[in-house]
Nucleic acid binder design. Structure first.
Lengths: 107, 107
DNA sequence: TTAATTCATAGCCAATGGGATATCAATTCC
DNA sequence: GGAATTGATATCCCATTGGCTATGAATTAA
């Protein structure tokens, strides 16, 4: 059983899938049809990707009649932030060049 | 031409590769041999993964005699933090919009 | 100079996974 | 009821990729 980081990184590694998640973050709840219209791939592919995102806890689906409304679940990103800051923490404690990172983030 | 997020997510998606990066973050500079000793895969595989990490800018290699010392490059994680906080930002701004709407309806 | 060490590269193979089309189930409209 | 819409599932195909072994190149030791 893969841990949370494993699932998140693998799930977000695919560009099509990440684009779907980004749209849901930017524009909020959307139906499968609306997502398919701009996804550049077929509807079954979109459904499959949404299934993977759902398994990872990154989205949730709300059934309404014959359509399903998907929305992003921001909380699922927490382990990603944890991991990144943990790596940064290890690094910072070893050396003292965190300034480089902060400069980049400041842009 | 994949963007920074693309490269980072894809690179960190593989567990073996991520474990190598984590070790370099935790324990600092290490030779290929030292990394191979605990990686659970063969030396050529470790070298290949280090090559991918290097391409992504996540590590750098320092040649010293016949051995190569690799170390993590924390700065490369910046786009990852950017992306995550950006997604969180979109979410918050939509939340703010909802709040605004509710306020207006309240009047 | 020869042998041994260290790492990178080259090929090869099997598994994974993202894409497509075809189809099914459920719902809504006529 | 029958047709149309919406999304999920089934199956297949092919490119990618992570693993291996074998080997090469460079450095150090004998």
């Amino acid at each position: 059983m893969p841990d949370a980081h494993e699932v998140l990184f693998r799930t977000l590694a695919d560009p099509t899938r990440r684009a779907l998640f980004e749209r849901l973050c930017r524009e909020g709840e959307k139906t499968v049809g609306a997502l398919t219209a701009h996804a550049g791939v077929s509807q079954p592919v979109v459904s499959k990707h949404l299934g993977v995102l759902k398994q990872a806890g990154l989205v949730r689906g709300r059934h309404e009649g014959r359509q399903t409304h998907y929305s992003a679940q921001l909380g699922a990103l927490a382990p990603l932030l944890d991991w990144t800051s943990q790596m940064a923490g290890f690094w910072e404690s070893r050396f003292d060049q965190l300034e480089d990172l902060l400069k980049r983030m400041d842009q």
